[in-house]
Amino acid sequence: MKFLYYPGCTLKNKAKALDIYARECAEILGFELVEINDFQCCGGVFTTSADEIATKLAVVRALKAAKAAGMPLVTVCSACHNVIKQTNHAMQTDAVFADRVNRYLNDGDDYHGETKVYHYLEVLRDIIGFDKVKECVKYPLNMNIGAYYGCLMLRPGSVIEMDDAENPQIMEQLIKALGGRPVEYGNRNECCGGYVTVTDPGFARKRSRIIYESAETAGAEMIVTACPLCRYNLIKNGADIPVKYFTELLSKALIGEKE
């Protein structure tokens, strides 16, 4: 199966690991990621204000490209996924907004949210199946791993619809499939401080500490995330255990550790 792949700006720079491993593993698991041409940055966060059009156009263009290509759109980065999902939802449900966007783009092909949007994890769970992933594992992880969802991957729950936002299981299921032992901790769906790290690093430090201490207390030997900013915040603010992208873990289990 083919997916139009939206890597996002961070995956081309600071989060290359998130990107490279995702591509490698897709090949092994039997699905194809076709990188979207000339993608533009999603903006990192969705502006909830209904009167903002310009900040959402880049994502609408990506969604339209997927529609034109007849493929679902897939993302790996939590932030991109959140923005794309929320924008698509606005195009589906807010007629005034959709009309304005369509009239502005005015390319003869009106868009109303037809594109199906997947997070890479959803592809693994809903299309490939974690059983298949498990079959492909060569190097079981055999360690205690705490999944860190943060906020962007789950909320708003009624829009993102990836999992139960209060009791998500998708990453725990992946960890299990890869031979690891998932460690659930209370703060796995709370915020790490996010972009506030830019303007108020002290506050971000407090938030990040709450998260990794919660994971460590619960017995995690590693934290795994899908968000470059979560990873940055946790590492920068003193996590005592490694913080990895889920794709790194996937690759480690399927392909093995690289030199």
Partner: peptide, 18 residues
Amino acid sequence: IIDGEIPQQALVSAYRKF
């Protein structure tokens, strides 16, 4: 703010918000 590690995502997000 740039410390060599900060992801682009942080900067564009903060820009969008602030």
